[in-house]
């Protein structure tokens, strides 16, 4: 087993933890954290393949994609956080439970 394989398998596990978290977590903040974990899994898989395809240096394209992706994911997470805080501020709700 090579290094990249360990991480690509981990990436799949993280992805699934993230997606499970989105489905099952209740609190807004936890749901948002779950999306970030899911994203982390996806980015990890990109980078692990970059390591596999290294020649003189690791494949730079996935690295660049991941940097872009992280920034995009952070922007979405910040927006989600703003929404969650605003909802809590206005209604005191911190889960979707009481929203039909």
């Amino acid at each position: 087993m090579e290094t990249y394989q360990i991480y690509s398998l981990t990436s799949a596990i993280l992805f699934i933890i993230g997606i499970g978290g989105i489905f099952m977590a209740r609190h807004f903040i936890k749901k948002i954290i779950a999306t970030v974990i899911m994203g982390g899994g996806v980015f990890l898989s990109f980078v692990s393949f970059a390591q596999r395809d290294a020649i003189t240096f690791a494949d730079p394209v996935p690295h660049a994609l991941v940097i872009t992706g992280i920034v995009v994911a952070v922007a979405s997470a910040a927006l989600a956080l703003a929404l969650a805080r605003r909802i809590y501020q206005l209604t005191g709700e911190e889960t979707f439970t009481n929203d039909k």
């Binding site: 290094t3 990249y4 991480y7 981990t10 970030v36 982390g40 980015f43 990890l44 980078v47 692990s48 970059a50 390591q51 290294a54 240096f57 690791a58 690295h63 991941v66 940097i67 992280i70 920034v71 994911a73 952070v74």
Partner: peptide
């Protein structure tokens, strides 16, 4: 750290800093 292990220093810095 995982990204450092995978030789992706740029990503590691970005992750640590932003994510």
């Amino acid at each position: 750290l995982a990204w450092v292990r995978l030789g992706a220093i740029d990503v590691a810095i970005t992750e640590a800093a932003i994510a």
